[in-house]
Design a protein around this nucleic acid. Structure first.
Length: 516
RNA sequence: GCUCGGUUGGACAAGCUGGCUAAGUCAUCACAUUUUCAAUGUGAAAAUCACGGGUUCGAGUCCCGUACCGAGUACCA
């Protein structure tokens, strides 16, 4: 019997800790995770902190917490450990140099001693000469200071002397580089359009390209699923795999997340302008103290964010839109990911949130709103207790997108109105309304405090109004105005129940006095 | 500039290897329900598939060109 051993799928999410994890990064992580789970593979987390100048304290913890919040579990890597530790590239630093030097001894890379000024001068010169490829490449490297043009002794002397240098990849002059992207199919690029990329920086740190390829190989990554912004450098990565003589993993380049309106990819600024979060969690900048809002703090449920994110660039091809994480894992396939950029429509996220909110039980929601940090101390919902919260949930559940709106949307539940909507008052506050108020006030007195329920109130008020010759429908809006100060809102009878007999009576008296 | 992508109703967005009347969601409108506004339910209207050629019996789907949009083009990732 023949046993076919297939390599276990291993994917990785490899963010760099330069700030809070962008929501697009969360989507990338999610797709990696879904694919890994679907295939019974492993999900790794690697921290790509090779740029020491951009390191931001707290960013790594933020990444871990954000992934945890949305429910992405890491099998191996930073935070959980594993056989390929360390998983932080800065801690793997010595390794990369070895690999870079290996390429040099194989003739696939070289030392370059050019200073930033010299490079700028070269670029400027080429620009003026209107040369197409204004880059360090097979042609221009012959005019620069590197281990190809300089005599061997000179190179050795410079290194021994401690001169700054970088290691660059020797990109072939004319070669067709092709690879098959899972989402984009064949991608073909000519090597002449790629420059001799720096592999090892003068500070001894690798660039993204080197570190990424070395680590993916060492960590036995089988599928690289990343954003489309990496597509142009994928041929370079293929070249690197070739130079090392390693087998390249499969690639899948995800469509970009686009601005909700207009053109361009989603950026931090869009969140500020559009008044919606762009990060999974709230983030306080450690340098400026500036606070960026998060989906979590805005009141989004992680299920909703996951569902929303899953559909940003992917679609199951059916009409089903609501997916739990487990259902996503079942359904997800890379070939259903589209090529076109996905527009970041926050309204859709709200739609999902509303859906998941409605799925929650009243009890769950009640304890949620009891837990909400109170923006306005006078509301003091916690003091009002569990039963009150439960009633509020019954009143508001169908009307809100976020649980905190069950409080914020109904200030009149907490405070006696002092001003009354003028438009409504003008059209609805008339003799009938005045008469109705006294009828209502009186009939309410007959209800026992304990029995002051929406049903009882309804059954008492409506017949009383009718008996007084008033059409209930005609004065209900006025009654609402009296109780809430505004013309629209949740179920009135239930509102009355929540307010209680004494408060309702008081409000009627107040309103009659103010409205005259 | 160069390299690589994208372009389907008002918005988002399905449509895999070309084949009968081009999904669905949001928004809009109508009706139902209701004490209002929402929510909910039912139904309606709405797309010469960016444009121009070509291949084919047949193209949103394949090829070429044009336009527009985007990504990349660092000792950033």
């Amino acid at each position: 019997m023949k046993v076919v051993l297939q390599n276990m799928v291993r994917v990785r999410f490899a963010p760099s800790p330069t700030g809070p994890l962008h929501i697009g990064g969360v989507r990338t992580a999610l797709y990696n995770y879904l694919f890994a789970r679907k295939m019974g593979g492993k999900m790794l987390l690697r921290i790509e902190d090779t740029d020491q100048t951009r390191y931001v304290p707290g960013a790594e913890d933020y990444i871990l917490e954000a992934l945890k919040w949305v429910g992405i579990e890491i099998d191996e890597g930073q935070g959980v450990g594993g056989p390929h530790a360390p998983y932080r590239q800065s801690e793997r630093k010595p390794m990369y140099r070895q690999y870079a030097e290996q390429l040099i001894s194989d003739g696939k890379a070289y030392y370059a001693f050019d200073t930033t000024e010299e490079l700028d001068a070269m670029r400027k010169q080429l620009e003026e000469a209107k040369v197409d490829n204004m880059s360090y490449n097979a042609v221009t490297r012959m005019q620069m200071k590197n281990s190809i043009t300089l005599p061997k002794e000179d190179v050795e002397a410079r290194i021994a002397n401690g001169d700054a240098y970088v290691i660059r990849l020797k990109v072939p002059l004319k070669e067709e580089i092709r690879f098959k992207d899972i989402i984009r199919d064949w991608v073909v690029v000519h090597s002449s359009t790629i420059d001799d990329k720096v592999l090892l920086k003068s500070d001894g740190m690798p660039t993204y390209h080197l570190a990424n390829i070395v680590d993916d190989h060492l960590m036995k990554i089988t599928h690289v699923i990343r954003g489309e912004e990496w597509l142009p450098s994928a041929p370079l990565h293929i070249l690197l795999y070739k130079a090392f003589g390693w087998q390249a993993p499969e690639f899948a380049h995800l469509p970009l997340l686009l601005k909700p309106e207009g053109n361009g990819k989603l950026s931090k600024r869009d969140g500020l302008l559009g008044n919606f979060p762009i990060f999974p969690l709230e983030w306080k900048d450690p340098f400026t103290g500036e606070i960026a809002r998060g989906f979590r703090e805005d009141g989004y449920y992680p299920e909703a964010v996951v569902n929303f994110l899953a559909f940003l660039g992917w679609n199951p091809g059916t009409e089903q839109e609501i997916f739990s994480m487990d259902e996503l894992i079942d359904t997800f396939t890379l070939d259903k990911i589209h090529k076109a950029g996905a527009r970041f429509m926050v309204d859709k996220a709200k739609w999902f949130n509303q859906h998941y909110l409605k799925e929650k039980s009243d009890e769950e929601l009640a304890s949620e709103i009891l837990d909400i940090r109170q923006e306005r101390a006078e509301f003091r919902i916690r003091e009002k207790g569990h039963d009150f919260a439960l009633k509020l949930v019954r009143l508001m559940k169908d009307r809100v997108v976020f649980s905190q709106e069950m409080i914020s949307e109904v200030p009149f539940i907490f405070e006696t109105p002092t001003v009354y909507d003028e438009e409504i008052a003008k059209s609805k506050w008339n003799d009938d309304a005045r008469k109705a108020m006294s009828v209502i006030k009186e009939s309410i007195q007959s209800i026992d405090n304990q029995e002051f329920t929406s049903q009882n109130i309804h059954d008492t008020i409506f017949p009383a109004l009718e008996a007084a010759g008033i059409k209930a429908g005609k004065v209900m809006q006025a009654f609402r105005l009296v109780i809430t100060g505004v013309g629209k809102g949740p179920d009135l009878m239930l509102t009355l129940e929540i307010l209680g007999k004494a408060e309702v009576t008081k409000r009627i008296e107040n309103a009659v006095e103010v409205l005259g």
